[in-house]
């Protein structure tokens, strides 16, 4: 059952199969926690996010629809939403963010990191290196900080109307680099 795919485990978990749910939890605990921590920079918030996300899955108030993409993508979206909401609720959010120019590039992870994660990370990291610093910054502010369009405009000294275009351009370049390098993509 360890190799059962996510969708099947989720189906069982939604029927209150505790063991299936636990397997799903074990499979994603570290990624969800690490991602929440990456957004919130606060271990307590990250813990709350993990708890909220998995409790909602268990009690059925967060519902994954298999027709709409991979379970992992959905789970990470739910995680990001919760982390951003939590930051905003604590009003730590729309203060002027302290963002280092290259926050998007961090130190390589530990060797214990799961192979799949490591592989995806290596791929996307090398694509990130192809971006210019402004593009890296805008992705950091937009995706990991979850800032409003206005805050991004202020921070990057861009006209409000150009923010969306800049974000799309940076993301498209990132994705294009990954595809061009023959990566398997992360879908």
């Amino acid at each position: 059952m360890n190799h059962t795919d996510d969708g099947t485990l989720y189906g069982l978990a939604s029927s209150k199969d505790r063991r299936a749910f636990e397997l799903l939890y074990d499979r994603y605990e570290k990624l969800v926690f690490s991602f929440a921590y990456r957004i919130a920079s606060d271990r307590e918030i990250a813990e709350e996010v993990v708890q909220d996300v998995f409790v909602k899955i268990w009690n059925g108030s967060a519902v994954y629809e298999p027709g709409k993409g991979a379970f992992s993508s959905w789970l990470l979206t739910v995680t990001r939403n919760k982390a951003i909401d939590e930051l905003r609720r604590l009003q730590r959010h729309d203060h002027e963010p302290m963002v280092e120019k290259d926050a998007l590039l961090e130190q390589p992870g530990s060797v214990e990191q799961t192979a799949a994660w490591h592989e995806q990370q290596a791929e996307i990291r090398s694509a990130v290196l192809e971006l210019n610093p402004e593009q890296r910054e805008i992705i950091e502010l937009f995706y990991f900080r979850g800032l409003s369009q206005q805050k991004i405009a202020d921070h990057c000294e861009l006209p409000l109307g150009t923010v969306k275009g800049r974000i799309r351009l940076a993301l498209q370049k990132l994705r294009g680099t990954i595809t061009k390098e023959g990566g398997t993509s992360y879908e």
């Binding site: 993508s73 996307i124 990291r125 992705i139 799309r168 993301l171 992360y186």
Partner: peptide
């Protein structure tokens, strides 16, 4: 946007 950002969470360092 959803598609293009799908891989970004994997940039997170293992905590």
């Amino acid at each position: 946007l959803r598609t293009l950002t799908e891989g970004l969470p994997y940039l997170s360092e293992e905590a």
